[in-house]
Design a protein around this nucleic acid. Structure first.
Lengths: 342, 342
DNA sequence: GTGAAAGCGCTAACAC
DNA sequence: GTGTTAGCGCTTTCAC
């Protein structure tokens, strides 16, 4: 407590000049004498002067802070997105303040309600699963806070969004299974009502339809995103009298859970039963057989989101937001090998 | 730009009272009339008033911000630590500002030099690999900024630290291999010069010594922390004329790399060759055979670090820091099964 | 080119 | 119990 940091006032006093001159010198404003400027800079360095962002923020009405709100950070996708965000934030002189919702809508709401919007220049958000009400985001946007959504976007809200091409990725994944000889393809989906899971579901359905395969409602099971859910969902599928011979999982975690369930039941993945995921989590190369998947450009998504947000912040007049959809990439590994004849 | 948020002044004007009364009412200071207080609260809620943290920070000399500086977030350990930090920060009304160094000492230094210390109440840090100079941390501590180190700590610096018991974890891991019949145990280590890798190395050496096994310098290879390094290191070991029959890896990532190398060479992990890691990354259960390891209490480490930091901040007079060492836990899986006789 | 002064939003004496 | 005032550290007119 009672820490005193060196301020421009200190510098001004020592150099016997005014604070405004110091301020100008420090910020490299032109109308300041070269000599005084150098003296100021030298002294600032010597005293180890660091500007107080609170003060700067107050005075300028803009802070160096970007808020990032997301469900989790303990998985490959989100941690990589943050790394991307961090990268461009860092290069542009912004700090990021991290809020994790644990995928709880209540927590998300609580965070939003306590958010000191005035100390944030903008917000990057990936909404939590059951957050059906996005009013809190709309409100904040109405107040003029720039926000850009990534991955788990709120469709109703009109602002910038960046995401992967969930529909086409899913379509490609499922078509790949079909082309490899699988015909009874299930989908272990995410929760209902999220835009990206819906897109993946639609990709699944359309791929089947294109190839004249019947949609079997029993083969679509909705639940959470974890490996455990993937395992559970798969056991459920395997209890059906009419069993699938392949599955497309909404993400790699669930696909891995599925593979574990299949192994436990003695079913050979990649021969008798095809599996494909979505994400390209490093785990997919570790598990055996290696998991085929749709690679998501997570780092890129983080970078682009942050770049968009900065545009919103710096050019509010000229930039009115855009939606960016990045393509995924089919990565064929062992889990979806051509179905063995017997 | 030119966003105007509602301030206590606005509320004061509308209610025709002074700003200080509004301020008091909002912060629940006692000497304020129940009735006015209710009016203020009601209006604040109606207008969706949010305090400006920059202003509060400036006025009170303390912000709601904790800085977190660490090498990476894209792995199980660090992302889990952050989640723990986040949890207690959230419950105590702090925000966290995230800085990732990408394990680069230069980046770490740059971050520290640009750090607006005055807008941070404290700092949680895990240093980057080759950061041999910790002066920048010492300086900041000398200025009165509370900092606590976690995991990758700077030994020379006298402040709170929280880490797992690297020495005993390593000792136990290696002894486990020995007890399971392995006698020629290698260590694929981290870089030299970091305190936690040194501790793990020492645990390795002491376990061998206790069991009268010779230390073979060729069997200790130092490199980075990634899976790729683990693979490389292992190939290197396998080229030795005198080959080891087991290895202890400084972390699970490297252990997994090792397993991949061993598989590629046709060596049966867990029968001919024992492998054990450190961390308990979820990947260790995915890989086959499943990887034995020492589980680190990552979430707990995050929580404790943050709690310590908050103590430093709130009780600077009475709390002078402490070192917490959390025990790891040996988790035996398949990769270290009793060596098969032949 | 430089200084004085007001003000960003809030808190905290100090009066009354 | 409430208002007035000064001040946190910095920026920014507006003078000179």
């Amino acid at each position: 407590m009672a820490r005193h940091y060196v301020t421009i006032k200190d510098i001004a006093k020592i150099l016997n000049i005014s604070v405004s001159t110091v301020s100008r010198a420090l910020r490299d404003t032109y109308d300041v004498n070269q000599e005084t400027k150098e003296k100021v800079l030298a002294l600032a360095a010597e005293l180890n002067y660091k500007p107080n962002f609170n003060a700067t923020g107050l005075a300028k009405g803009s802070t160096h802070n970007l808020g990032v709100i997301l469900p989790f950070i303990t998985n490959y996708y989100f941690s990589t997105v943050i790394t991307g965000i961090q990268e461009v934030a860092y290069n542009n002189g912004y700090n990021i303040t991290l809020f994790v919702t644990n995928d709880s809508p209540e927590r998300e709401l609580a965070i939003m309600e306590n958010l000191s919007v005035s100390s944030l220049d903008g917000l990057l958000v990936s909404i939590s699963s059951d957050s059906d009400s996005c009013n809190h985001f709309q409100e904040i946007i109405d107040e003029g806070v720039p926000v850009v959504f990534f991955d788990r976007v709120a469709n109703e809200i009109d602002t910038s969004k960046v995401m992967q091409d969930d529909y086409n990725g899913a379509f490609e994944a499922v078509e790949h299974l079909i082309l490899n000889g699988y015909t009874k393809i299930a989908h272990i989906a995410g929760p209902k009502g999220m835009s990206f899971t819906e897109a993946r579901l639609k990709g699944y359905i359309d791929a089947l339809t294109k190839h004249h395969l019947r949609i079997n409602e029993d083969w679509i099971v909705y639940s959470g995103f974890s490996q455990e859910y993937g395992e559970q969902d798969t056991y459920q599928l395997l209890q059906l009298k009419q069993q699938p011979d392949a599955l497309f999982a909404v993400n790699d975690r669930k696909a891995i859970g599925a593979m574990i369930a299949l192994k436990n039941k003695g079913i050979k993945v990649g021969e008798e039963f095809g599996v494909i995921g979505f994400t390209n989590d490093p785990m997919s190369t570790i598990i055996s057989p290696a998991l085929s998947t749709i690679a998501e450009p997570a780092f890129e998504i983080g970078k682009l989101s942050c770049e968009l947000l900065i545009k919103h912040i710096t050019k509010p007049k000229y930039f009115h937001g855009e939606e960016i959809v990045l393509p995924g990439k089919l990565i064929v590994r062992e889990s979806s090998m051509r179905k063995a004849k017997h």
